[in-house]
Simulated scan of single mutants.
Amino acid sequence: MSIVIINTGCANLFSVKIAIQRLGYQVLISDNRKDILTAKKIFLPGVGSSTSVMMMLRKKNLIETICQLKQPVLGICLGMQLFSNISLENNRCKMLNIIPDLTVRLHSQKYSLPHIGWNNVYFHKYNILFDGIDSGTRFYFLHSYCIYPTKYTIALTKHGSFFSAAIKKNNFFGVQFHPEKSGINGLQLLKNFLEI
């Protein structure tokens, strides 16, 4: 099976690659359009600034390619936020517009930002991404921006207020947490995605 991690120039590319390899899969980090279009599963990781990642995707002429994908795609952290319409980080940044929702600064109230560390993830309906994982399981987060609950939300977590821990629209899946840093449950989630 051909698995591609889209090269967004972000720091977590290799940690995602290592986690996938631990599950026994071969995986390629690439920004080659042909590699991406012919892959069976695609990962879109991201850390840092939405503006810089979107600029990188635009420079590599990958925005239209990503939006037209029909195979399963998993956005991780900023990669999930890229699926939104607009990010309010750095004023306004146009995103991929896969879901018609905003990425906004987390309303953490008395809690500090960025939101760093382990937090419980809750879901109420079965979704293949969480097969074999209990609602309330803890995953590792590192972010200051989020997508608040929307009709595409499949799991929630709370840091001051509830926000989307995972989303799904058609073949596009997203997780705000880092499964590659979330131990055995994170590996289970990656395995579930790879077996879709």
Results as ranks from 00 to 15, higher is better:
residue 9 G to L: 08
residue 10 C to M: 04
residue 101 D to G: 07
residue 89 E to R: 01
residue 170 N to Y: 03
residue 99 I to P: 07
residue 52 S to N: 15
residue 36 I to R: 10
residue 146 C to A: 11
residue 154 I to R: 05
residue 31 D to V: 14
residue 98 I to Y: 01
residue 190 L to T: 03
residue 78 L to W: 05
residue 141 F to V: 12
residue 156 L to H: 04
residue 79 G to K: 05
residue 185 N to I: 04
residue 78 L to G: 03
residue 107 H to P: 11
residue 50 S to K: 10
residue 17 K to W: 00
residue 185 N to Y: 13
residue 164 S to A: 02
residue 31 D to T: 12
residue 161 S to Q: 06
residue 141 F to Q: 07
residue 124 H to W: 07
residue 108 S to F: 11
residue 151 K to S: 11
residue 88 L to M: 12
residue 124 H to K: 10
residue 169 K to F: 07
residue 94 K to Q: 12
residue 21 Q to W: 00
residue 107 H to F: 14
residue 193 F to D: 09
residue 19 A to W: 00
residue 79 G to M: 03
residue 60 K to E: 02
residue 112 S to C: 13
residue 125 K to L: 06
residue 12 N to I: 03
residue 2 S to H: 12
residue 3 I to W: 05
residue 165 A to T: 01
residue 191 K to I: 08
residue 29 I to K: 00
residue 50 S to F: 08
residue 151 K to P: 06
residue 80 M to V: 10
residue 91 N to K: 15
residue 8 T to P: 10
residue 185 N to E: 08
residue 80 M to Y: 14
residue 8 T to I: 14
residue 52 S to H: 14
residue 101 D to C: 13
residue 52 S to M: 15
residue 127 N to L: 05
residue 111 Y to S: 05
residue 44 L to T: 03
residue 194 L to E: 03
residue 189 L to V: 11
residue 125 K to C: 11
residue 92 R to P: 08
residue 140 Y to V: 10
residue 83 F to Q: 03
residue 123 F to C: 01
residue 44 L to M: 04
residue 160 G to D: 01
residue 153 T to E: 10
residue 50 S to V: 08
residue 45 P to H: 07
residue 40 K to A: 12
residue 166 A to F: 08
residue 47 V to R: 04
residue 22 R to L: 06
residue 141 F to H: 11
residue 130 F to T: 09
residue 120 N to F: 11
residue 72 P to S: 03
residue 5 I to G: 03
residue 91 N to T: 14
residue 161 S to N: 07
residue 111 Y to W: 09
residue 25 Y to L: 11
residue 150 T to S: 02
residue 47 V to C: 07
residue 134 D to Y: 03
residue 144 S to F: 09
residue 99 I to C: 02
residue 48 G to T: 08
residue 174 G to A: 00
residue 107 H to A: 15
residue 28 L to N: 14
residue 147 I to P: 07
residue 193 F to T: 10
residue 171 N to L: 11
residue 48 G to P: 05
residue 102 L to P: 07
residue 79 G to W: 02
residue 3 I to P: 10
